[in-house]
Simulated assay, not measured.
Amino acid sequence: MTTVDTGARPVEEIRFGGARAFGVELFTPGEVAEVAAAVAAVPAGLRHGAREVPSLSTIGEAFYLNRERPGYYAACARAENRLLYRHFRLVHERVAVFFEQRYGMPVVYAEDLAVPGFHLFEFPEPGEYPGGGWHVDSLETQVPSLVARRAAITAVVNFTVPFVLPDGGSGLDLEADVPGAPPGRRGGGEPVTVPYRAGTMVFTETELWHRISGSRCRKPGQRRVTHQGHGVRLGDRWLFFW
Rank of each mutant, 00 (worst) to 15 (best):
Phe27Tyr: 11
Glu31Pro: 00
Val32Pro: 08
Ala33Gln: 15
Glu34Asn: 06
Val35Cys: 07
Val35Met: 10
Ala36Glu: 12
Ala37Ile: 02
Ala37Pro: 02
Ala37Ser: 13
Ala38Arg: 15
Ala38Glu: 09
Val39Ile: 13
Ala40Val: 04
Ala40Leu: 09
Ala41Glu: 14
Pro43Ile: 09
Pro43Phe: 02
Ala44Trp: 12
Gly45Trp: 14
Gly45Asn: 11
Gly45Glu: 14
Leu46Gln: 07
Leu46Met: 11
Arg47Trp: 11
Gly49Val: 11
Ala50His: 11
Arg51Gln: 12
Glu52Ile: 04
Pro54Asn: 05
Ser55Tyr: 12
Leu56Glu: 02
Thr58Met: 08
Ile59Val: 06
Gly60Trp: 00
Glu61Leu: 15
Glu61Thr: 12
Glu61Asp: 10
Ala62Pro: 03
Phe63Arg: 00
Phe63Ser: 01
Tyr64Ala: 06
Leu65Gln: 11
Asn66Ala: 10
Arg67Lys: 05
Arg69Val: 02
Pro70Gln: 03
Cys76Thr: 07
Cys76Arg: 15
Ala77Ser: 13
Ala77Ile: 03
Arg78Asn: 04
Arg78Thr: 10
Arg78Gly: 05
Arg78Cys: 10
Ala79Asp: 08
Ala79Arg: 14
Glu80Met: 08
Glu80Gln: 15
Arg82Trp: 03
Arg82Tyr: 01
Arg82His: 09
Leu83Gly: 01
Arg86Met: 03
Arg86Gly: 10
His87Thr: 03
His87Phe: 09
Phe88Leu: 00
Phe88His: 01
His92Trp: 02
His92Glu: 01
Glu93Val: 07
Val95Gln: 06
Val95Phe: 01
Ala96Cys: 10
Val97Ser: 10
Phe98Met: 02
Phe98Asp: 00
Glu100Met: 09
Gln101Lys: 12
Arg102Asp: 06
Arg102Leu: 15
Gly104Gln: 13
Pro106Cys: 07
Val107Gly: 01
Val107Ala: 02
Val107Ile: 15
Val108Asn: 05
Val108Arg: 15
Val108His: 12
Tyr109His: 12
Ala110Gly: 12
Leu113Cys: 13
Leu113Glu: 10
Ala114Asn: 13
Val115Gln: 03
Val115Thr: 07
Phe118Glu: 00
His119Met: 02
His119Arg: 13
His119Cys: 00
Leu120Cys: 11
Phe121Arg: 09
Phe121Tyr: 15
Glu122Lys: 12
Phe123His: 12
Pro124Lys: 06
Pro124Trp: 08
Glu125Trp: 09
Pro126Leu: 05
Tyr129Phe: 13
Pro130Ile: 00
Gly132Lys: 06
Trp134Pro: 08
Trp134Val: 06
Trp134Ile: 10
His135Ile: 04
Val136Gln: 12
Ser138Gly: 14
Ser138Ile: 07
Leu139Glu: 11
Thr141His: 14
Thr141Lys: 15
Gln142Asp: 10
Gln142Asn: 08
Val143His: 09
Ser145Val: 14
Ser145Asn: 06
Leu146Trp: 13
Leu146His: 11
Leu146Ser: 05
Val147Cys: 14
Val147Leu: 13
Ala148Ile: 04
Ala152Asp: 13
Ile153Val: 14
Ile153Thr: 05
Val156Ala: 04
Val156Glu: 05
Val156Asn: 05
Val156Arg: 03
Val156Gly: 03
Val157Cys: 15
Val157Pro: 00
Asn158Thr: 09
Val161Asp: 00
